[in-house]
Simulated scan of single mutants.
Amino acid sequence: MDHTVCGILALAGPIDYFSLFLTSDIIQILVDETNLYATQVIQTANDITPFCLHGWTPTDAKEMEQFVGLLGWMGIVKVAELPNYWSKSKLSSFDLPKKVVARNRFELLLRFWHFADNNSSIPGDRTHKIKNVFQKFVENFKKAYTPGTRICIDETMVPFRGRLSFRQYIPSKRHRYGIKLYKLCTDKGYTWHVKVYVGRDLTGDPTQVTSRNVTLNLIQDLLADVECST
Protein backbone atom coordinates (compact mmCIF):
# COMPACT_ATOMS: atom_id res chain seq x y z
CA MET A 1 0.00 0.00 0.00
CA ASP A 2 1.52 3.37 -0.96
CA HIS A 3 1.93 6.37 1.39
CA THR A 4 -0.90 8.32 -0.28
CA VAL A 5 -3.40 5.55 0.39
CA CYS A 6 -2.11 5.16 3.95
CA GLY A 7 -2.60 8.89 4.54
CA ILE A 8 -6.17 8.79 3.24
CA LEU A 9 -7.08 5.72 5.30
CA ALA A 10 -5.69 7.29 8.46
CA LEU A 11 -8.80 9.49 8.45
CA ALA A 12 -11.15 6.89 6.95
CA GLY A 13 -14.14 5.17 8.49
CA PRO A 14 -15.05 1.47 8.65
CA ILE A 15 -16.84 1.53 5.28
CA ASP A 16 -13.69 2.85 3.58
CA TYR A 17 -11.65 -0.06 4.89
CA PHE A 18 -14.41 -2.50 3.97
CA SER A 19 -14.44 -1.08 0.42
CA LEU A 20 -10.78 -1.98 0.00
CA PHE A 21 -11.86 -5.62 -0.15
CA LEU A 22 -15.48 -5.59 -1.35
CA THR A 23 -14.72 -3.48 -4.41
CA SER A 24 -17.09 -2.21 -7.08
CA ASP A 25 -16.00 -4.87 -9.58
CA ILE A 26 -16.94 -7.64 -7.12
CA ILE A 27 -20.30 -6.01 -6.46
CA GLN A 28 -20.92 -5.85 -10.21
CA ILE A 29 -20.16 -9.57 -10.57
CA LEU A 30 -22.72 -10.31 -7.86
CA VAL A 31 -25.27 -8.11 -9.62
CA ASP A 32 -24.70 -9.64 -13.07
CA GLU A 33 -24.64 -13.26 -11.91
CA THR A 34 -27.66 -12.85 -9.61
CA ASN A 35 -29.70 -11.29 -12.40
CA LEU A 36 -28.57 -14.00 -14.83
CA TYR A 37 -29.45 -16.84 -12.47
CA ALA A 38 -32.85 -15.30 -11.70
CA THR A 39 -33.58 -15.12 -15.43
CA GLN A 40 -32.50 -18.72 -15.94
CA VAL A 41 -34.72 -20.00 -13.11
CA ILE A 42 -37.77 -18.00 -14.15
CA GLN A 43 -37.43 -19.02 -17.81
CA THR A 44 -37.56 -22.69 -16.82
CA ALA A 45 -40.33 -22.21 -14.26
CA ASN A 46 -43.43 -24.37 -14.35
CA ASP A 47 -46.97 -23.98 -13.10
CA ILE A 48 -46.09 -24.98 -9.55
CA THR A 49 -43.27 -22.41 -9.20
CA PRO A 50 -44.07 -20.06 -6.29
CA PHE A 51 -45.78 -16.92 -7.51
CA CYS A 52 -43.32 -14.70 -5.63
CA LEU A 53 -40.49 -15.73 -7.99
CA HIS A 54 -42.35 -14.17 -10.89
CA GLY A 55 -42.30 -10.86 -9.02
CA TRP A 56 -38.55 -10.61 -9.46
CA THR A 57 -37.03 -7.40 -10.83
CA PRO A 58 -33.32 -7.07 -11.65
CA THR A 59 -31.08 -5.85 -8.86
CA ASP A 60 -28.39 -3.18 -9.11
CA ALA A 61 -25.13 -2.23 -7.42
CA LYS A 62 -26.71 -0.05 -4.73
CA GLU A 63 -29.21 -2.71 -3.69
CA MET A 64 -26.51 -5.40 -3.76
CA GLU A 65 -24.28 -3.38 -1.43
CA GLN A 66 -27.18 -2.97 0.98
CA PHE A 67 -27.99 -6.67 0.77
CA VAL A 68 -24.40 -7.74 1.49
CA GLY A 69 -24.17 -5.22 4.32
CA LEU A 70 -27.35 -6.56 5.86
CA LEU A 71 -26.03 -10.13 5.63
CA GLY A 72 -22.93 -9.01 7.52
CA TRP A 73 -25.07 -7.38 10.20
CA MET A 74 -27.13 -10.57 10.52
CA GLY A 75 -23.93 -12.48 11.18
CA ILE A 76 -23.49 -10.38 14.32
CA VAL A 77 -27.12 -9.94 15.39
CA LYS A 78 -28.49 -13.48 15.31
CA VAL A 79 -32.09 -14.65 15.68
CA ALA A 80 -33.71 -18.08 15.53
CA GLU A 81 -35.45 -17.62 12.16
CA LEU A 82 -34.91 -15.24 9.25
CA PRO A 83 -38.44 -13.69 9.31
CA ASN A 84 -37.80 -12.56 12.89
CA TYR A 85 -35.60 -9.75 11.60
CA TRP A 86 -38.76 -8.15 10.22
CA SER A 87 -40.92 -9.03 13.22
CA LYS A 88 -43.33 -6.37 14.50
CA SER A 89 -43.14 -7.71 18.04
CA LYS A 90 -41.94 -5.15 20.58
CA LEU A 91 -39.80 -7.82 22.20
CA SER A 92 -37.82 -8.68 19.06
CA SER A 93 -38.15 -5.73 16.74
CA PHE A 94 -35.23 -4.49 14.63
CA ASP A 95 -35.33 -1.20 12.74
CA LEU A 96 -32.38 -1.76 10.39
CA PRO A 97 -33.72 -4.59 8.16
CA LYS A 98 -37.03 -2.76 7.63
CA LYS A 99 -35.18 0.38 6.56
CA VAL A 100 -32.89 -1.44 4.16
CA VAL A 101 -35.17 -3.84 2.28
CA ALA A 102 -38.59 -5.49 2.50
CA ARG A 103 -38.59 -9.06 3.75
CA ASN A 104 -40.00 -10.54 0.52
CA ARG A 105 -37.39 -8.72 -1.55
CA PHE A 106 -34.59 -9.89 0.74
CA GLU A 107 -35.74 -13.50 0.41
CA LEU A 108 -35.82 -13.16 -3.37
CA LEU A 109 -32.28 -11.77 -3.43
CA LEU A 110 -31.14 -14.57 -1.15
CA ARG A 111 -32.89 -17.15 -3.36
CA PHE A 112 -31.12 -15.96 -6.53
CA TRP A 113 -27.79 -14.77 -5.07
CA HIS A 114 -25.06 -16.11 -7.34
CA PHE A 115 -21.35 -15.60 -8.01
CA ALA A 116 -20.93 -17.51 -11.30
CA ASP A 117 -22.87 -18.87 -14.25
CA ASN A 118 -23.74 -22.52 -13.60
CA ASN A 119 -23.73 -23.23 -17.33
CA SER A 120 -20.05 -22.29 -17.72
CA SER A 121 -18.71 -24.65 -15.06
CA ILE A 122 -15.79 -26.93 -15.94
CA PRO A 123 -16.18 -30.61 -14.98
CA GLY A 124 -14.15 -31.35 -11.87
CA ASP A 125 -13.84 -27.70 -10.81
CA ARG A 126 -15.27 -27.90 -7.30
CA THR A 127 -14.90 -24.18 -6.56
CA HIS A 128 -16.49 -22.89 -9.76
CA LYS A 129 -19.42 -21.25 -7.97
CA ILE A 130 -17.15 -19.00 -5.90
CA LYS A 131 -13.75 -19.03 -7.64
CA ASN A 132 -13.98 -15.77 -9.58
CA VAL A 133 -15.13 -13.69 -6.61
CA PHE A 134 -12.87 -15.54 -4.18
CA GLN A 135 -9.79 -14.83 -6.30
CA LYS A 136 -10.66 -11.15 -6.51
CA PHE A 137 -10.91 -10.95 -2.72
CA VAL A 138 -7.48 -12.55 -2.41
CA GLU A 139 -6.06 -10.06 -4.93
CA ASN A 140 -7.48 -7.24 -2.82
CA PHE A 141 -5.96 -8.74 0.34
CA LYS A 142 -2.56 -8.60 -1.36
CA LYS A 143 -3.01 -5.06 -2.71
CA ALA A 144 -4.07 -3.59 0.61
CA TYR A 145 -1.07 -4.68 2.66
CA THR A 146 2.43 -6.09 2.24
CA PRO A 147 3.61 -8.35 5.08
CA GLY A 148 6.92 -7.94 6.81
CA THR A 149 9.29 -10.77 7.64
CA ARG A 150 7.08 -12.30 10.34
CA ILE A 151 4.45 -14.48 8.67
CA CYS A 152 2.56 -17.65 9.53
CA ILE A 153 1.18 -20.42 7.32
CA ASP A 154 -1.45 -22.69 8.79
CA GLU A 155 -4.82 -24.26 8.15
CA THR A 156 -8.20 -23.24 9.51
CA MET A 157 -11.77 -24.49 9.35
CA VAL A 158 -14.82 -22.52 8.26
CA PRO A 159 -17.76 -24.15 10.09
CA PHE A 160 -20.16 -25.80 7.64
CA ARG A 161 -22.50 -28.78 8.01
CA GLY A 162 -24.28 -28.62 4.67
CA ARG A 163 -23.84 -30.91 1.67
CA LEU A 164 -20.49 -30.34 -0.02
CA SER A 165 -18.15 -32.79 -1.72
CA PHE A 166 -15.03 -31.35 -0.07
CA ARG A 167 -16.45 -30.76 3.40
CA GLN A 168 -13.95 -31.94 5.99
CA TYR A 169 -14.33 -33.71 9.31
CA ILE A 170 -11.44 -33.01 11.69
CA PRO A 171 -12.13 -34.20 15.27
CA SER A 172 -9.29 -32.15 16.75
CA LYS A 173 -10.80 -28.84 15.58
CA ARG A 174 -13.24 -26.81 17.64
CA HIS A 175 -15.63 -26.86 14.66
CA ARG A 176 -15.22 -30.44 13.48
CA TYR A 177 -17.21 -30.11 10.24
CA GLY A 178 -16.41 -27.45 7.69
CA ILE A 179 -14.32 -26.18 4.81
CA LYS A 180 -10.57 -26.32 5.30
CA LEU A 181 -8.50 -23.33 4.24
CA TYR A 182 -4.76 -22.88 3.93
CA LYS A 183 -3.79 -19.33 4.95
CA LEU A 184 -0.76 -17.09 4.94
CA CYS A 185 -1.13 -14.49 7.69
CA THR A 186 0.97 -11.77 9.28
CA ASP A 187 2.01 -11.81 12.93
CA LYS A 188 -0.86 -9.35 13.59
CA GLY A 189 -3.45 -11.72 12.11
CA TYR A 190 -3.94 -10.15 8.67
CA THR A 191 -4.81 -12.72 5.97
CA TRP A 192 -2.63 -12.07 2.93
CA HIS A 193 -3.32 -15.23 0.93
CA VAL A 194 -5.78 -18.09 1.27
CA LYS A 195 -6.55 -21.29 -0.64
CA VAL A 196 -9.52 -23.62 -0.35
CA TYR A 197 -8.74 -27.30 0.23
CA VAL A 198 -10.98 -29.28 -2.12
CA GLY A 199 -9.84 -32.82 -1.39
CA ARG A 200 -6.56 -32.65 -3.25
CA ASP A 201 -3.47 -30.56 -2.74
CA LEU A 202 -3.12 -27.08 -4.24
CA THR A 203 -1.59 -28.39 -7.48
CA GLY A 204 -4.41 -30.85 -8.06
CA ASP A 205 -2.00 -33.78 -7.87
CA PRO A 206 -2.94 -36.22 -5.06
CA THR A 207 0.67 -37.46 -4.92
CA GLN A 208 2.00 -34.03 -3.93
CA VAL A 209 0.16 -33.38 -0.64
CA THR A 210 3.03 -32.01 1.41
CA SER A 211 3.52 -29.05 3.71
CA ARG A 212 6.30 -27.87 1.42
CA ASN A 213 4.05 -27.54 -1.63
CA VAL A 214 1.31 -25.80 0.34
CA THR A 215 3.87 -23.32 1.68
CA LEU A 216 5.44 -22.62 -1.71
CA ASN A 217 2.06 -22.08 -3.31
CA LEU A 218 0.95 -19.57 -0.69
CA ILE A 219 4.23 -17.67 -0.55
CA GLN A 220 4.97 -17.60 -4.27
CA ASP A 221 3.65 -14.09 -4.99
CA LEU A 222 5.30 -12.71 -1.86
CA LEU A 223 8.67 -14.08 -2.99
CA ALA A 224 8.10 -12.58 -6.46
CA ASP A 225 7.55 -9.14 -4.88
CA VAL A 226 10.82 -9.49 -2.94
CA GLU A 227 12.73 -10.43 -6.11
CA CYS A 228 11.30 -7.44 -7.98
CA SER A 229 12.36 -5.04 -5.24
CA THR A 230 15.95 -6.32 -5.08
Rank of each mutant, 00 (worst) to 15 (best):
M1N: 12
T4Y: 13
L9M: 15
L9H: 09
L11M: 09
P14E: 14
I15P: 02
D16E: 15
F18W: 15
I27T: 14
D32E: 15
D32Q: 13
N35R: 03
L36G: 01
Y37V: 04
Y37K: 14
T44Y: 06
N46G: 15
N46K: 13
I48M: 09
T49N: 12
P50F: 04
L53Y: 11
P58V: 00
A61T: 04
M64L: 01
E65S: 08
F67Q: 06
G72H: 11
G75A: 07
G75D: 06
G75S: 08
V77L: 14
N84I: 01
N84C: 07
W86P: 07
W86T: 04
S89L: 05
K90M: 09
L96K: 10
R103I: 04
F106P: 07
F106K: 05
F106T: 05
L109M: 09
L109S: 02
L110H: 07
F112V: 01
H114G: 00
F115V: 02
N119Y: 09
S120H: 06
G124A: 10
T127M: 11
N132Q: 14
V133T: 15
V133L: 10
Q135R: 11
Q135A: 11
T146C: 13
C152Q: 12
D154Y: 09
M157F: 05
P159E: 06
R163V: 07
L164R: 02
F166D: 12
I170R: 06
K173R: 14
R176H: 14
G178D: 05
I179P: 07
K180A: 11
L181F: 12
Y182M: 03
L184F: 03
D187S: 11
D187M: 01
W192S: 01
H193I: 00
R200F: 00
T203N: 05
T207G: 02
Q208I: 00
T210Q: 05
L216E: 13
L222C: 09
D225Y: 02
D225G: 00
V226G: 02
E227Q: 10
C228R: 10
S229F: 12
T230G: 06
